[in-house]
Computed example of a mutant assay.
Amino acid sequence: MPADPARELASQPGRGHRTSAVEVRRSARRRRTVSAYRDGDRTVVLIPARMSAAEEQRWVAVMLDKLAAQESRRMPGDDELAARAERLSEQYLDGRAVPDTVRWVTNQNSRWGSCTPSEGSIRLSHRLQGMPEYVIDYVLLHELAHLLVPGHGPAFWKLLESYPRTERARGFLEGVAADRPRHPGDSGEGRGARDGRDDHQGRKAIGE
């Protein structure tokens, strides 16, 4: 069964303070699972194509409440993100990766994260906010590893072997990317968090 086109619902408030437009995307690849994430000012809810309208409405409400609850517990600012990066470096990279700056940015729509090794700067896309903590930790660790190894060769991936949720996080990001419709102006580069890509001007980026 072909997936129905994505459609927008009216803005709906969750349990928390945030109100956003809701976009429901049906996929024939999904059988039972439902997931949701923030994409800028929108909330995207991913559901199986066979789900009824009543089930859709119920799950949208459930996922909005879940996201609001998660965000009320954790919406790390730049300072917290930097502290998190320091902890991950100590735990998985023997403290060898020491960034000068770690911050959220809103201008990365085709990348989850990027870094500039020459400046020691790491940037994470705001679209990660609201995703599971282990996914954010993976993207942070991915960019920290680039401070030590520029490319995506065996030496780079060996640095991530000790993180127990690498494959799970990569699978989560790939699933989000697969359900995200293409927009005019998307370059098509960097799709696939499994491999990542080199960005311009010496930056290293992890794509979707």
Rank of each mutant, 00 (worst) to 15 (best):
71 E>A: 08
41 D>N: 03
116 T>I: 02
194 R>F: 10
5 P>Y: 03
67 L>G: 12
75 M>W: 11
107 N>L: 07
151 G>S: 13
114 S>N: 03
206 I>Y: 06
136 I>D: 09
48 P>G: 05
164 P>T: 03
112 W>R: 12
115 C>K: 02
196 G>D: 07
50 R>E: 15
202 G>Y: 04
165 R>Q: 14
97 A>F: 08
17 H>Q: 14
152 H>C: 09
187 S>K: 04
84 R>N: 00
64 L>R: 04
183 H>P: 00
57 Q>R: 15
25 R>F: 00
146 H>D: 11
20 S>L: 13
147 L>E: 03
40 G>V: 01
65 D>K: 02
178 A>G: 05
62 V>A: 12
62 V>S: 01
5 P>Q: 02
82 A>G: 10
38 R>C: 13
145 A>S: 13
70 Q>H: 13
131 M>Q: 04
89 S>H: 05
55 E>I: 02
184 P>K: 11
136 I>W: 05
116 T>S: 12
113 G>V: 10
145 A>D: 04
201 Q>R: 15
38 R>H: 12
30 R>Y: 06
78 D>F: 09
32 R>V: 13
165 R>N: 11
163 Y>Q: 11
186 D>Y: 10
113 G>N: 02
46 L>Q: 13
16 G>I: 07
5 P>V: 03
127 R>E: 01
168 R>P: 05
39 D>S: 13
59 W>L: 12
67 L>C: 05
193 A>C: 00
76 P>S: 11
120 G>C: 07
112 W>V: 06
63 M>D: 06
17 H>A: 15
147 L>A: 09
118 S>E: 12
193 A>E: 02
72 S>Q: 15
43 T>K: 11
201 Q>F: 14
187 S>F: 09
115 C>I: 04
105 V>H: 00
53 A>T: 13
135 V>C: 05
117 P>L: 04
159 L>Q: 01
108 Q>I: 03
155 A>N: 06
109 N>V: 14
193 A>M: 10
50 R>V: 12
63 M>R: 14
32 R>A: 14
1 M>R: 14
154 P>F: 07
123 R>D: 13
78 D>M: 11
103 R>H: 10
154 P>G: 08
87 R>I: 01
26 R>T: 07
13 P>E: 00
200 H>N: 14
115 C>W: 04
195 D>L: 13
85 A>V: 09
29 R>T: 00
1 M>N: 03
88 L>P: 03
55 E>R: 14
94 D>Q: 14
125 S>P: 08
115 C>R: 04
44 V>F: 00
45 V>L: 08
94 D>S: 13
175 G>C: 07
51 M>F: 06
39 D>K: 13
75 M>C: 12
4 D>Q: 15
61 A>Y: 04
174 E>N: 15
189 E>S: 12
115 C>A: 08
155 A>L: 10
151 G>K: 08
51 M>P: 06
34 V>Q: 09
114 S>E: 10
130 G>L: 04
119 E>Q: 15
16 G>S: 12
160 L>D: 06
38 R>Y: 05
168 R>Q: 15
74 R>I: 00
186 D>A: 09
1 M>V: 15
136 I>P: 01
